[in-house]
Amino acid sequence: MLEAGPHGTKPRRIVSPHNIMLYGFLIVAALYWLLPLYVMVVTSLKGMPEIRLGNIFAPPVEVTFAPWAKAWDSACTGLYCEGLKVGFWNSIRILVPSVVISIVIASVNGYALSFWRFKGSEVFFTILIFGAFIPYQVLIYPLVIILRELGLFSTLGGVILVHTIFGMPILTLLFRNYFASVPVELFKAARVDGAGFWRIFFQIMLPMSLPIFVVAIILQVTGIWNDFLFGVIYAGTRNFPMTVQLNNIVNSTQGVKEYNVNMAATLLTGALPLIVYFISGKLFVRGIAAGAVKG
Protein backbone atom coordinates (compact mmCIF):
# COMPACT_ATOMS: atom_id res chain seq x y z
CA MET A 1 0.00 0.00 0.00
CA LEU A 2 1.28 3.43 -0.95
CA GLU A 3 0.84 6.29 1.45
CA ALA A 4 -0.72 9.49 0.21
CA GLY A 5 1.75 11.96 -1.25
CA PRO A 6 4.59 11.73 -3.79
CA HIS A 7 5.35 8.35 -5.30
CA GLY A 8 7.15 7.06 -8.38
CA THR A 9 8.89 9.23 -10.95
CA LYS A 10 9.00 12.91 -10.14
CA PRO A 11 6.78 14.77 -12.67
CA ARG A 12 8.55 17.31 -14.86
CA ARG A 13 6.84 20.48 -16.00
CA ILE A 14 7.53 21.29 -19.63
CA VAL A 15 6.58 24.96 -19.32
CA SER A 16 8.57 26.31 -16.42
CA PRO A 17 10.45 29.58 -15.95
CA HIS A 18 13.67 27.66 -16.23
CA ASN A 19 12.75 26.10 -19.57
CA ILE A 20 11.34 29.35 -20.97
CA MET A 21 14.62 31.11 -20.20
CA LEU A 22 16.70 28.28 -21.58
CA TYR A 23 14.84 27.72 -24.84
CA GLY A 24 14.23 31.45 -25.29
CA PHE A 25 17.95 32.08 -25.22
CA LEU A 26 18.71 29.16 -27.52
CA ILE A 27 16.14 30.29 -30.09
CA VAL A 28 17.40 33.88 -30.09
CA ALA A 29 20.99 32.68 -30.46
CA ALA A 30 20.06 30.35 -33.30
CA LEU A 31 18.18 33.11 -35.14
CA TYR A 32 21.11 35.47 -34.71
CA TRP A 33 23.50 33.05 -36.42
CA LEU A 34 21.07 31.76 -39.02
CA LEU A 35 19.89 35.15 -40.26
CA PRO A 36 22.96 35.91 -42.41
CA LEU A 37 22.71 32.47 -43.97
CA TYR A 38 19.05 33.09 -44.71
CA VAL A 39 19.85 36.41 -46.38
CA MET A 40 22.54 34.75 -48.47
CA VAL A 41 20.30 31.92 -49.65
CA VAL A 42 17.41 34.26 -50.40
CA THR A 43 19.57 36.74 -52.27
CA SER A 44 21.24 34.05 -54.35
CA LEU A 45 17.83 32.96 -55.61
CA LYS A 46 16.72 36.43 -56.74
CA GLY A 47 17.28 38.19 -60.04
CA MET A 48 19.16 41.50 -60.09
CA PRO A 49 15.98 43.66 -60.51
CA GLU A 50 14.52 42.18 -57.36
CA ILE A 51 17.76 42.78 -55.45
CA ARG A 52 17.75 46.43 -56.43
CA LEU A 53 14.45 46.85 -54.55
CA GLY A 54 16.59 46.57 -51.42
CA ASN A 55 14.35 44.28 -49.30
CA ILE A 56 17.10 41.92 -48.26
CA PHE A 57 14.88 39.88 -45.90
CA ALA A 58 12.05 39.39 -48.37
CA PRO A 59 11.82 35.93 -49.95
CA PRO A 60 12.31 35.80 -53.74
CA VAL A 61 9.20 36.47 -55.83
CA GLU A 62 10.64 34.74 -58.84
CA VAL A 63 13.02 31.92 -57.88
CA THR A 64 15.94 31.66 -60.28
CA PHE A 65 18.96 29.38 -60.25
CA ALA A 66 20.78 31.38 -62.90
CA PRO A 67 23.14 33.04 -60.37
CA TRP A 68 24.23 29.59 -59.11
CA ALA A 69 24.88 28.38 -62.63
CA LYS A 70 26.83 31.53 -63.41
CA ALA A 71 28.87 31.33 -60.22
CA TRP A 72 29.82 27.72 -60.95
CA ASP A 73 30.32 27.95 -64.69
CA SER A 74 30.99 31.41 -66.10
CA ALA A 75 31.70 34.04 -63.47
CA CYS A 76 34.87 36.00 -64.17
CA THR A 77 37.82 35.47 -61.89
CA GLY A 78 40.17 38.10 -63.09
CA LEU A 79 41.09 37.36 -66.68
CA TYR A 80 39.29 34.06 -67.12
CA CYS A 81 35.53 33.67 -67.09
CA GLU A 82 35.18 29.98 -66.26
CA GLY A 83 33.44 30.28 -62.90
CA LEU A 84 34.28 28.59 -59.61
CA LYS A 85 34.49 25.07 -60.99
CA VAL A 86 38.18 25.47 -61.74
CA GLY A 87 38.82 26.52 -58.16
CA PHE A 88 36.69 23.69 -56.85
CA TRP A 89 38.78 21.06 -58.62
CA ASN A 90 41.98 22.82 -57.60
CA SER A 91 40.82 22.75 -53.98
CA ILE A 92 40.06 19.05 -54.25
CA ARG A 93 43.50 18.41 -55.77
CA ILE A 94 45.11 20.27 -52.86
CA LEU A 95 42.80 18.88 -50.19
CA VAL A 96 42.94 15.14 -50.77
CA PRO A 97 46.74 14.63 -50.79
CA SER A 98 47.26 17.15 -47.95
CA VAL A 99 44.72 15.47 -45.69
CA VAL A 100 45.91 11.95 -46.44
CA ILE A 101 49.63 12.66 -46.15
CA SER A 102 49.38 14.78 -43.01
CA ILE A 103 47.15 12.30 -41.20
CA VAL A 104 49.24 9.29 -42.17
CA ILE A 105 52.43 10.92 -40.92
CA ALA A 106 50.85 12.41 -37.79
CA SER A 107 49.20 9.14 -36.73
CA VAL A 108 52.49 7.27 -37.01
CA ASN A 109 54.20 10.13 -35.15
CA GLY A 110 51.67 10.04 -32.35
CA TYR A 111 51.88 6.26 -32.11
CA ALA A 112 55.66 6.25 -31.99
CA LEU A 113 55.77 9.06 -29.45
CA SER A 114 53.39 7.30 -27.08
CA PHE A 115 54.68 3.75 -27.31
CA TRP A 116 58.16 3.65 -28.79
CA ARG A 117 59.89 6.18 -26.58
CA PHE A 118 63.38 6.82 -27.81
CA LYS A 119 66.16 8.94 -26.41
CA GLY A 120 65.10 12.52 -26.91
CA SER A 121 61.53 11.68 -27.86
CA GLU A 122 60.19 14.06 -25.23
CA VAL A 123 62.37 16.86 -26.58
CA PHE A 124 61.25 16.06 -30.10
CA PHE A 125 57.63 16.20 -29.03
CA THR A 126 58.13 19.50 -27.19
CA ILE A 127 59.71 21.08 -30.25
CA LEU A 128 56.89 19.81 -32.42
CA ILE A 129 54.25 21.22 -30.09
CA PHE A 130 56.15 24.48 -29.88
CA GLY A 131 55.61 24.67 -33.62
CA ALA A 132 51.89 24.99 -32.98
CA PHE A 133 52.45 28.26 -31.15
CA ILE A 134 54.60 30.00 -33.75
CA PRO A 135 52.46 32.48 -35.70
CA TYR A 136 52.73 31.10 -39.23
CA GLN A 137 52.99 34.50 -40.82
CA VAL A 138 56.57 34.50 -39.56
CA LEU A 139 57.36 31.46 -41.66
CA ILE A 140 55.76 32.55 -44.90
CA TYR A 141 58.77 34.20 -46.47
CA PRO A 142 61.34 31.57 -45.41
CA LEU A 143 59.00 28.94 -46.84
CA VAL A 144 58.80 30.82 -50.11
CA ILE A 145 62.59 30.64 -50.38
CA ILE A 146 62.72 26.97 -49.36
CA LEU A 147 60.07 26.04 -51.91
CA ARG A 148 61.82 28.06 -54.60
CA GLU A 149 65.08 26.23 -53.89
CA LEU A 150 63.24 22.92 -54.01
CA GLY A 151 61.62 23.94 -57.29
CA LEU A 152 58.20 23.57 -55.73
CA PHE A 153 57.13 27.18 -55.60
CA SER A 154 53.84 27.87 -57.41
CA THR A 155 53.09 24.19 -57.78
CA LEU A 156 50.47 21.85 -56.39
CA GLY A 157 53.19 19.89 -54.61
CA GLY A 158 54.41 23.03 -52.89
CA VAL A 159 51.09 23.97 -51.37
CA ILE A 160 50.44 20.35 -50.33
CA LEU A 161 53.81 20.26 -48.58
CA VAL A 162 53.00 23.49 -46.73
CA HIS A 163 49.64 22.20 -45.55
CA THR A 164 51.21 18.93 -44.41
CA ILE A 165 53.88 20.74 -42.42
CA PHE A 166 51.48 23.14 -40.75
CA GLY A 167 49.06 20.38 -39.86
CA MET A 168 51.76 18.34 -38.16
CA PRO A 169 51.98 19.83 -34.63
CA ILE A 170 48.30 19.82 -33.77
CA LEU A 171 47.63 16.46 -35.45
CA THR A 172 50.58 14.80 -33.74
CA LEU A 173 49.39 16.15 -30.41
CA LEU A 174 45.91 14.83 -31.15
CA PHE A 175 47.14 11.35 -32.01
CA ARG A 176 49.70 11.16 -29.26
CA ASN A 177 47.13 12.02 -26.62
CA TYR A 178 44.72 9.52 -28.05
CA PHE A 179 47.29 6.72 -28.05
CA ALA A 180 48.43 7.74 -24.58
CA SER A 181 44.94 6.81 -23.40
CA VAL A 182 45.34 3.29 -24.81
CA PRO A 183 46.50 0.97 -21.99
CA VAL A 184 50.22 0.32 -22.35
CA GLU A 185 49.62 -3.32 -21.38
CA LEU A 186 47.91 -3.78 -24.74
CA PHE A 187 51.12 -2.74 -26.42
CA LYS A 188 53.17 -5.00 -24.17
CA ALA A 189 50.90 -7.95 -24.87
CA ALA A 190 51.32 -7.40 -28.59
CA ARG A 191 55.09 -7.30 -28.20
CA VAL A 192 55.08 -10.57 -26.25
CA ASP A 193 52.98 -11.95 -29.10
CA GLY A 194 55.83 -11.00 -31.39
CA ALA A 195 54.30 -8.09 -33.27
CA GLY A 196 56.63 -5.31 -34.40
CA PHE A 197 56.26 -1.57 -34.92
CA TRP A 198 54.07 -1.68 -38.03
CA ARG A 199 52.05 -4.73 -37.19
CA ILE A 200 51.05 -3.28 -33.80
CA PHE A 201 50.17 -0.03 -35.55
CA PHE A 202 48.07 -1.53 -38.31
CA GLN A 203 46.48 -4.52 -36.60
CA ILE A 204 46.03 -3.34 -33.02
CA MET A 205 46.08 0.44 -32.86
CA LEU A 206 44.43 1.48 -36.13
CA PRO A 207 41.25 -0.56 -35.68
CA MET A 208 40.65 1.04 -32.31
CA SER A 209 41.35 4.62 -33.32
CA LEU A 210 38.56 5.34 -35.79
CA PRO A 211 37.10 8.21 -33.69
CA ILE A 212 40.35 10.12 -33.59
CA PHE A 213 40.84 9.66 -37.33
CA VAL A 214 37.43 11.17 -37.93
CA VAL A 215 38.35 14.14 -35.76
CA ALA A 216 41.63 14.57 -37.60
CA ILE A 217 39.96 14.33 -41.01
CA ILE A 218 37.34 16.93 -40.08
CA LEU A 219 39.97 19.29 -38.69
CA GLN A 220 42.14 18.97 -41.78
CA VAL A 221 39.37 19.03 -44.38
CA THR A 222 37.75 22.16 -42.99
CA GLY A 223 41.07 23.81 -42.22
CA ILE A 224 42.62 23.22 -45.64
CA TRP A 225 39.45 23.92 -47.57
CA ASN A 226 38.99 27.24 -45.81
CA ASP A 227 42.63 28.23 -46.27
CA PHE A 228 43.22 31.32 -48.33
CA LEU A 229 46.68 32.54 -47.48
CA PHE A 230 48.77 29.47 -48.36
CA GLY A 231 46.72 28.97 -51.52
CA VAL A 232 47.28 32.47 -52.78
CA ILE A 233 50.98 32.46 -51.91
CA TYR A 234 52.25 28.98 -52.73
CA ALA A 235 49.84 27.40 -55.21
CA GLY A 236 50.49 29.60 -58.25
CA THR A 237 47.81 31.14 -60.50
CA ARG A 238 46.87 27.94 -62.26
CA ASN A 239 46.27 26.13 -58.97
CA PHE A 240 44.38 28.77 -57.00
CA PRO A 241 41.96 27.05 -54.61
CA MET A 242 38.27 27.86 -54.49
CA THR A 243 38.63 30.43 -51.70
CA VAL A 244 41.04 32.51 -53.75
CA GLN A 245 38.82 32.36 -56.82
CA LEU A 246 35.82 33.30 -54.73
CA ASN A 247 37.69 36.37 -53.62
CA ASN A 248 38.52 37.19 -57.23
CA ILE A 249 34.89 36.90 -58.26
CA VAL A 250 33.54 38.94 -55.36
CA ASN A 251 36.16 41.64 -55.51
CA SER A 252 36.44 42.12 -59.26
CA THR A 253 34.86 45.49 -59.96
CA GLN A 254 33.69 45.49 -63.55
CA GLY A 255 30.27 47.06 -64.05
CA VAL A 256 27.45 46.01 -61.77
CA LYS A 257 28.08 44.13 -58.54
CA GLU A 258 26.15 40.91 -58.97
CA TYR A 259 25.11 40.25 -55.38
CA ASN A 260 23.17 37.12 -56.30
CA VAL A 261 26.17 35.56 -58.05
CA ASN A 262 28.47 36.51 -55.20
CA MET A 263 26.13 34.96 -52.65
CA ALA A 264 25.80 31.78 -54.69
CA ALA A 265 29.57 31.56 -55.12
CA THR A 266 30.12 32.01 -51.40
CA LEU A 267 27.57 29.36 -50.55
CA LEU A 268 29.17 26.98 -53.04
CA THR A 269 32.57 27.54 -51.49
CA GLY A 270 31.28 27.06 -47.97
CA ALA A 271 29.22 24.02 -48.90
CA LEU A 272 31.88 21.37 -48.35
CA PRO A 273 32.82 22.26 -44.75
CA LEU A 274 29.13 22.68 -43.95
CA ILE A 275 28.32 19.23 -45.32
CA VAL A 276 31.24 17.72 -43.41
CA TYR A 277 29.98 19.24 -40.16
CA PHE A 278 26.42 18.10 -40.73
CA ILE A 279 27.37 14.54 -41.56
CA SER A 280 30.06 14.04 -38.98
CA GLY A 281 29.02 16.35 -36.16
CA LYS A 282 28.08 13.49 -33.88
CA LEU A 283 31.23 11.49 -34.61
CA PHE A 284 33.31 14.62 -34.14
CA VAL A 285 31.93 15.30 -30.67
CA ARG A 286 32.31 11.65 -29.77
CA GLY A 287 35.94 11.58 -30.87
CA ILE A 288 36.82 14.76 -29.01
CA ALA A 289 35.00 13.53 -25.93
CA ALA A 290 36.67 10.12 -26.08
CA GLY A 291 40.07 11.77 -26.07
CA ALA A 292 39.08 14.18 -23.32
CA VAL A 293 37.64 11.67 -20.91
CA LYS A 294 40.33 9.05 -21.14
CA GLY A 295 43.32 11.27 -21.82
Binding site: P183, K188, A190, P207
Partner: peptide
Protein backbone atom coordinates in the same frame (compact mmCIF):
# COMPACT_ATOMS: atom_id res chain seq x y z
CA UNK B 1 52.47 -13.10 -20.16
CA UNK B 2 49.14 -12.28 -18.54
CA UNK B 3 48.37 -8.72 -17.51
CA UNK B 4 46.24 -7.18 -14.80
CA UNK B 5 44.04 -5.29 -17.26
CA UNK B 6 43.74 -8.44 -19.45
CA UNK B 7 45.09 -6.41 -22.41
CA UNK B 8 42.87 -8.18 -24.92
CA UNK B 9 42.82 -6.67 -28.39
CA UNK B 10 39.39 -5.00 -28.36
CA UNK B 11 38.67 -5.21 -32.10
Amino acid sequence: MVFQSYALYPQ
